[in-house]
Design a protein around this nucleic acid. Sequence first.
DNA 1: CGAGCGCTTGATTGAGTTCAAAAATCGTGG
DNA 2: CCACGATTTTTGAACTCAATCAAGCGCTCG
Lengths: 188, 188
Amino acid sequence: MEFIHPFIKELEPSQLEELRQSILYKKVKKGTVLQLQGDINIKSYFVKKGLLRSYTIDEKGKEHVFMFAPEGWIISDMESHSKGLPAQLYIDVLEDSELEIVEKTILEKLTKLKNTEYFDKHNSLLINRIIVLQKRVILLMSATAKERYEDFLSTYPNIIQRVPQKLIASYLGITPEALSKIRGQLTK
Amino acid sequence: MEFIHPFIKELEPSQLEELRQSILYKKVKKGTVLQLQGDINIKSYFVKKGLLRSYTIDEKGKEHVFMFAPEGWIISDMESHSKGLPAQLYIDVLEDSELEIVEKTILEKLTKLKNTEYFDKHNSLLINRIIVLQKRVILLMSATAKERYEDFLSTYPNIIQRVPQKLIASYLGITPEALSKIRGQLTK
DNA sequence: CGAGCGCTTGATTGAGTTCAAAAATCGTGG
DNA sequence: CCACGATTTTTGAACTCAATCAAGCGCTCG
């Protein structure tokens, strides 16, 4: 129930119980694909332990990593869901993980509660996402691959050791070869 | 009061009056700079008529257009505001415009109302922003300048005639020269 | 009417891609 | 725990897209 925790402090046991029914605890193995582009039954994934990622595959067949989600993060396509759209993103498992899988029905339940604290927290999550995306757009427009990599290093130092470089390259929007050469330059 | 309109259907006259005090109607001339990067007293701008844009200037001194806001759009740094950060973006006026300038105090007033409809609408606005940003990140990572321009053409057909090409180039993350050459290719 | 700004066009340069092949690392079954 | 095959990473050469630099044209608006 860590997923709901930050949202709501004061809830009656019966309300809590109802919410709990929309949350499924699950251990998943590395390599599992949790969500495919185009899926309609969108869920959110709270990472208790492990590491997930979301990504797209473009018309040319190329993968583009959208985000990594280590412990404590929520990964989802809630954007798509709220709009009633099919999933834009794939989500898969990079390390054996323990998840809270949150059904979309929880959104309606939370809304029904008319709990302004929940709305506030949810807003704040969305705003965080916007700030991160905004920064990424600006980086993609104005920074060289090297600068983007250095920014990644300082922003997500803990992710680097856990993820193959090709995925980091993909996140940065460059080829694995290019990243390898940049790393070569930086260490020498 | 168009700004509040979509948020709230049922409000008592006294509540409405209080909200109104946080909203200022103003005509502004082309070229006016409404907000500077670093400003603390952040406002939001609802465009009744005209055209605004937001942009950053990076460490190398280059401008990057972040978004255009024609009639009916809201432009702001609400993200930064909610986090108590200074403005990330400049905002200026591309055409003589009529605006509703919304003080940040309105946020607190709206929150106090505990009006869940407002929260819902606000959430939905934020999610829209996320979807747009998400698409833009993917485009920047996976598409050539030409493809990005063609996407811009189909997504914002009405903006093109109203904005100098150098600003569109900046929005796309390319130089004006590059855009000019792409346009050359497309018309021949 | 002139100065400056915006758009175009061309030549040159450079960051990053693509293709290919070798070196290093990982994971799995025996 | 080792060995072998598969996947990742590195390295190099050729190429491409877009940036930079530079020059010329056409408008506008002051």
